[in-house]
Amino acid sequence: MTTAWYITAAITLVSTLMVITRHYPVHALLYLNVSLISLALLFYLMGAHFAALLQIIIYAGAIMVLFIFVIMLLNLGQETATQEKRWLKPKVWIGPCLLALILLVQFTYSLSLSKGETYINNVVEPKAVALSLFQSYMIGVQLAALLLMAAVVGAAHIGRHKRTNVHRFLQHKPDES
């Protein structure tokens, strides 16, 4: 399992390096995805199964989708279709796919071992995570909630469009948006 750990760590580094050196954002995103998944595998190998799952669900799932949405929204226009074809040539796919394949092989191998052996045999159960979050670090969780509130209120203010009232009788209060 030690070998698997080092291979995964190497894949994480390589894919992250590829993320910051790609010219097109879409290519960078492909590698970012691999980087996030391999990070999840690292968590798994270190016995943090729950964190690995969260990593997949939140980063590789939700946040990646957001990224893709933003990039798609930014690239509206006539030549978008041809541009996309130019960007997504097969050879672009080869690198990320290869890395992801290695990860898959390692994952299935480690699952096939009878004891579910990992790099560090100190498995943290979801129950332990929940207990430490909602007992000893309760205040931390609540602070995180306030952190999100600050982020949401701030983003709502910065991103808000000025409401334009079409009717002339409604145009008296421009700052009530």
């Binding site: 670090y137 931390g140 602070l143 600050a150 209120v153 701030g154 910065i158």
Partner: peptide, 22 residues
């Protein structure tokens, strides 16, 4: 943990406050 969370609440609030007159 509380150091980092406190610092981030402070900073994230400040991002929006600094750019308030957007």
């Amino acid at each position: 943990v509380s150091l980092f969370l406190g610092l981030e609440i402070l900073t994230i609030g400040l991002y929006a406050l600094i750019a308030y007159l957007r």
